[in-house]
Amino acid sequence: MAAGGDHGSPDSYRSPLASRYASPEMCFVFSDRYKFRTWRQLWLWLAEAEQTLGLPITDEQIQEMKSNLENIDFKMAAEEEKRLRHDVMAHVHTFGHCCPKAAGIIHLGATSCYVGDNTDLIILRNALDLLLPKLARVISRLADFAKERASLPTLGFTHFQPAQLTTVGKRCCLWIQDLCMDLQNLKRVRDDLRFRGVKGTTGTQASFLQLFEGDDHKVEQLDKMVTEKAGFKRAFIITGQTYTRKVDIEVLSVLASLGASVHKICTDIRLLANLKEMEEPFEKQQIGSSAMPYKRNPMRSERCCSLARHLMTLVMDPLQTASVQWFERTLDDSANRRICLAEAFLTADTILNTLQNISEGLVVYPKVIERRIRQELPFMATENIIMAMVKAGGSRQDCHEKIRVLSQQAASVVKQEGGDNDLIERIQVDAYFSPIHSQLDHLLDPSSFTGRASQQVQRFLEEEVYPLLKPYESVMKVKAELCL
């Protein structure tokens, strides 16, 4: 049975990233139509530049190519590739079939990587351009969430054990800070992308030097003109047959890092959902379990974690691919890159769409948070109580021993009897502590235990987050809708 299948058929496997999760716009960027249309555009740009620099290419040939950029006979191309065992030459023939007058000058002087690699770089750039505003929107939604809850005390956790208090907004800023680093890295790697350009079979530009009869300047002009037509500021000066596969490492490393950030955020949300302090959106008709109707599973956060793990592992592909590119190139890269580049971007696209949807509907339960604080705060307040007693004339050592005994009794009630923490009640009825009984409410005010959390939130948002989001103001209103 021949390899390949009808990918629109229910009898043929289709990647869930495309069929179930990723956005239509990201799927289109990695589609065959987008790819092969870009090949034709690159052939047109090459012909236009070659004509401008004096090669015998007519206006009629150029116009014929322009008129057929979208006229792609995919069936013919597939048949040609089956016959020739070469995808680029299959599309040269297919393009030439609908451009008979231009057929002889299509791909003039070029090698397969002229269309293959340059198209990949265009796709990487455009895919990054799709991700950047999506990530900015996630940051914006979380920034709104953090600002609104900047002063809401909550129990902090280290080692997932109760620690000092923080605020809900401050905790959210930990998430935002990681995503801001990801946004900066995505922008950097996007701006650092260079075009492969017009380089020939081993990167020496020998074929173009021959076409222009040894004119170095025209060869350099050709490279520059096509690079500018493709919208790049610069091209690699040095290439082998391909652009260095280190570029793929750079791009997928940034995406993998984004995956790590999203995994951490969504894990926190899942843990908070278990504590009943916070939940992701839950639709009115949504079913959490087929057997347990009360369940409210954090399905979206779980999906993000599941896909983020996949995204983090994909960076190993370009690392290994770059390491086995012998001399000017081997074909070890080809099949692998067809999979890992598309999957990385479709996965990143999915987790950003999902995280935006989550961040637009996060639900906080202040009463649950308050109750958990009441359970733990008495123990945390013991040092403040000791200091207040010393100020009232008591002995630190005597007070410490009193607190120690009462704390152990209260802990026994919590752990052995399943009761509430009654340390404060014990202190309130103990005559030894009568000098500070009137101060206990103040000493137990949760806001006095959150330090500068709310001020940190305000400063972080104003100095770091809002300036970073400013270039994306025009796209901030787009909502994230999930079908599944």
Rank of each mutant, 00 (worst) to 15 (best):
A2H: 15
A2C: 15
D6I: 07
G8H: 15
S9N: 15
P10W: 15
Y13H: 07
R14S: 15
P16A: 10
R20T: 01
F28C: 08
S31W: 00
S31E: 08
R37S: 12
T38G: 04
Q41K: 11
L44Y: 07
E48G: 04
E50Q: 07
T52W: 07
E64R: 06
E64W: 07
K66D: 10
K82N: 12
D87E: 11
A90P: 00
V92Y: 07
H93F: 08
C99E: 04
K101G: 12
G109D: 00
G116I: 04
D117L: 00
N118W: 03
I122T: 06
L128F: 09
L132A: 13
K134S: 13
L135F: 14
L135C: 08
V138F: 15
L142F: 12
F145I: 00
R149M: 12
S151M: 11
L152R: 06
Q161T: 05
T167F: 04
C173W: 00
Q184V: 14
N185L: 06
D191S: 11
R194N: 06
F195I: 09
G200A: 12
T202S: 13
T202Y: 01
T204R: 00
Q205G: 11
L211S: 07
L211M: 14
H217Q: 07
K218F: 11
E220L: 09
K224A: 13
M225S: 10
G231L: 09
A235G: 12
Y243E: 06
D248V: 02
E250Y: 10
L252A: 13
L258W: 15
S261L: 03
I269H: 01
L272Q: 13
L275V: 08
E277I: 00
F282R: 08
M299S: 13
R303C: 03
C304M: 14
L307S: 09
H310I: 11
T313L: 08
V324C: 15
V324A: 11
E328A: 04
E328K: 01
T330R: 05
D332R: 00
R338Y: 02
I339H: 12
E343K: 09
A344P: 07
A344S: 12
T350F: 03
I351A: 11
I351H: 03
E360G: 09
T382C: 09
I385P: 03
A388I: 06
G393P: 02
K402L: 08
S412A: 10
V414N: 07
Q416R: 09
E417K: 10
G419Q: 15
R426I: 06
F433D: 02
H437N: 07
H437W: 11
G451S: 03
A453R: 04
Q456A: 09
Q458S: 13
Q458F: 11
E473V: 12
E473D: 14
K479T: 14
A480T: 15
E481W: 07
